[in-house]
Design a protein around this nucleic acid. Structure first.
Lengths: 277, 277
DNA sequence: TTGACTTTTGACCGATTAGTCATTATTATA
DNA sequence: TATAATAATGACTAATCGGTCAAAAGTCAA
């Protein structure tokens, strides 16, 4: 549905500028050039719109990160990680603005659960990368490295949000790459221990239910015009309820949808589900 | 006035839990056990209350930081800096929660100006510390060090806000001290250059007007019972409008008020004003 | 052109908000 | 105790909010 996308884009501009509460549905509809009623034809509520925005962008960002972390060559990994982070942030700068800043408003249960979930995924990705990069050498400071990297991300990304002069991404990433390597090589005093991490992490089940995935696929299939991608999605959906295909076939189907902008996240989740990563 | 303090304390609890918008004046007055009218006897508006809260805590935090940065021995400086940061944050955890998270809401002009002002002061303090610690050796990466330190502050302080199990502050500070020293010693690729800083910093006049200080002192004098501190404040106020005392006397008067909890910030501003730092 | 059907509209609703002010309660003074 | 002065109250207002729904506008096959 076209309207839905229009509302999401336009509302994001307002949310980024004013925050959630300060932006009324009225304002959104005026900014879209539609009526109030039309808004409620696309979204059950303002709440649902916000959840949709969070999902849309976090899925994109998380799967971007994850792809680099799992796929890249070891030599360039760290550099590419920072590139994808800041690339993602500046590509979706309006959303990132909300994401970085409006965490208090995620006090609402739905929001906080969602954000915790995505933050956890990003943290896990970073941890995976660190383990790939440095292995056992950083066993005792790896969690601290995650925190430092997140710190770098937070402070430097603000440059993209609050000012809009051109920045030399290349240098920034090389610089942060160097610093990360320095910390990994020479840090000796860990603060965040494995035990502490256990304490911090609420028990969060990472397993995705089959039903949830089927629904996700249904939504995608509806929104798509006929294509290889659509066919692949339909086959994958059938595979979920009645497994019959081999690993290679499934992998091929995933390859088919990998590059479709709407399916990035879906591909990532399916890959995890079928344990193909 | 007692009421004012009560309202500030109680409202802070609600703001930290729910955010500014989600907390109504009604709720605040109920939580205080006073009437709505009584609220408006102490504060002209909800807006003014929020500004007062920001001022109160930022003044405290900034002057705490500044004292350590300017006063401490070089050996322990970095460690003490982190101690005072996290100490301040956990002492005023309710406020810090707002400060860290609710930046979107500072979109309002008053708020954003105020926060920019205080952030700038903190940044300047950190920069001063770095220059004291490492001198010319870090000339080209000193701004990046500031950003890294701020990154550490942001990520690790979240541990204090979102969870409330006991943390080993000592280890945390030693750990961050080590990491900061590592970055200062081995970083070679700067990203934030002096030029960039010029660009980032909006022209912000740091000079404080005499009138402003007189008003500040008046407010303090009103709220104080008779004491050495009060007398000192009155003498300093006179000195503002009609200079007559010598440097040593002024310095002594500042020493008198230094340890009074209400005067921390005032002392800091006066010291700057009289160029005694 | 008609008429059945879908999409879109915006006036309207109840709830909630920040802020006001005539009234009442309390305190201090004589 | 009587009176003046101050502090505190909470019902009230006007505005705005998210959300609804009967009615109007648009669409298309017959």
């Amino acid at each position: 549905m076209m309207k839905k996308q229009l509302i999401m884009e336009k509302s994001l501009e307002l949310f980024a500028k004013q925050g959630f509460d300060a932006t009324s549905v009225q304002q959104i509809t005026e900014h879209c050039g539609i009526s109030k009623g039309a808004f409620y034809l696309s979204f059950k509520s303002k709440h649902e719109l916000i959840l949709a925005l969070i999902d849309f962008f976090m899925m994109e960002i998380v799967s971007d990160i994850d792809r680099v972390v799992r796929g890249g060559e070891k030599e360039k990994l760290l550099f590419e990680f920072y590139q994808v982070i800041f690339g993602s942030f500046s590509k979706h700068s309006n959303y990132a603005k909300i994401f970085i800043k409006e965490q208090t408003h995620f006090i609402n249960d739905d929001f906080i659960t969602k954000m915790h979930h995505y933050n956890h995924l990003i943290e896990t990705s970073i941890l995976t990368m660190i383990e790939r990069l440095y292995g056992e050498k950083v066993a005792d400071i790896k969690y601290d490295l995650v925190y430092c990297i997140q710190g770098f991300m937070k402070t430097y990304s603000e440059l993209f949000f609050f000012h809009n002069f051109p920045l030399d991404l290349e240098t920034l990433c090389r610089s942060l790459e160097e610093r990360t390597n320095l910390l990994a090589a020479y840090s000796t005093i860990p603060f965040i221990t494995g035990d502490l991490v256990q304490l911090i992490r609420k028990p969060e089940s990472d397993e995705t239910s089959t039903d949830e995935l089927v629904q996700l696929l249904d939504r995608h299939i509806d929104e798509m015009s006929d294509s290889i991608e659509k066919e692949s999605l339909e086959l994958l959906k059938e595979e979920l309820s009645a497994p019959s295909l081999g690993r290679a076939v499934i992998n091929g189907l995933l390859e088919n949808i990998k590059h479709h902008p709407k399916c990035k996240w879906t591909e990532y989740r399916l890959r995890n589900y079928f344990q193909l990563s």
